[in-house]
């Protein structure tokens, strides 16, 4: 299991469906989520979480996903209020004007996402922000496979596995988007970068290698019409 239970993310979004879909995506990769639908309640929840640090298990939120147009108190106002607390915030909004973007970032938001968004993009940005805040885990454990991110080492049931750099990157991308099917194009972009004009067949070979070296034949599934998915 990837141990991410300690990472708590607050979703402040007034549209219940959008809030739910964010929650479902975050839960897939084992983030713990709290949903709140208006600004005032969010402020209260955030302040309460700060007070509870010492006592209860909850503790402060690790990240907040914040919609701008929410009832009670809008996202920008809320951002101003919670900025001193130092919790990273990603704005999520339908507003696309440059002014809104600049305003959001000026207020101290870590990132800014425009609706409609892709789930894996949101996850990637959360990942980046977590890393920036030093909240990224150093090791991922999955079905006897231990991945040490800092040393770029992988062991299978305690035995060191020799992976090429690209195979290692591919493994990390699959692990971080666990339970979500990634298309070959998405994998290509994340592992090889935007400017790589390789063939998607390259991925198939790398996946085949990973399955063999890490004994994950059943876990890395080929998903019809899409690509690959690492399953629990």
């Amino acid at each position: 299991m990837i141990n991410r239970l300690s990472k708590r993310i607050l979703i402040v979004e007034d549209d219940i469906h959008i809030s739910n879909i964010i929650k479902m995506n975050l839960n897939l990769v084992n983030y713990e989520t709290t949903q709140i639908y208006d600004g005032l309640a969010a402020l209260e929840a955030i302040q309460n979480s700060m007070i509870q640090v010492s006592g209860s298990a909850a503790g402060p939120f690790d990240l907040i996903i914040l919609d701008v147009m929410i009832p009670g108190m809008d996202g920008f106002q809320l951002m101003e209020r919670i900025r001193p607390l130092g919790i990273p915030v990603i704005f999520l909004t339908a507003k696309t004007t440059v002014f809104d973007k600049v305003n959001g970032l000026k207020l101290g938001a870590e990132d800014y996402m425009v609706k409609p968004f892709e789930a894996i993009e949101l996850l990637a940005r959360i990942e980046t922000v977590m890393r920036r805040y030093g909240k990224e885990e150093q090791a991922i454990h999955y079905k006897g496979v231990d991945v040490y991110l800092d040393k770029r080492e992988v062991t299978v049931y305690g035995e060191k596995a020799e992976l090429t750099p690209k195979e290692f990157d591919l493994l990390v991308v699959l692990l971080k988007n666990k339970n979500i099917a990634l298309s070959r194009e998405q994998i290509l972009e994340k592992v090889w970068g935007f400017d790589f004009y390789g063939e998607t067949r390259t991925i198939d070979t790398h996946v085949k290698e990973l399955r063999k070296k890490l004994r994950l034949q059943d876990s890395i599934r080929t998903v019809y019409k899409i690509g690959y998915r690492l399953e629990d």
Binding site: H17, I18, I21, N25, K115, P116, A119, N179
Partner: peptide, 16 residues
């Protein structure tokens, strides 16, 4: 807003 829900759910259903 509705587009975000539609795309979000459709993508969730097809990738997980």
């Amino acid at each position: 807003t509705p587009l975000t829900s539609i795309i979000g759910y459709a993508n969730f259903l097809r990738t997980t």
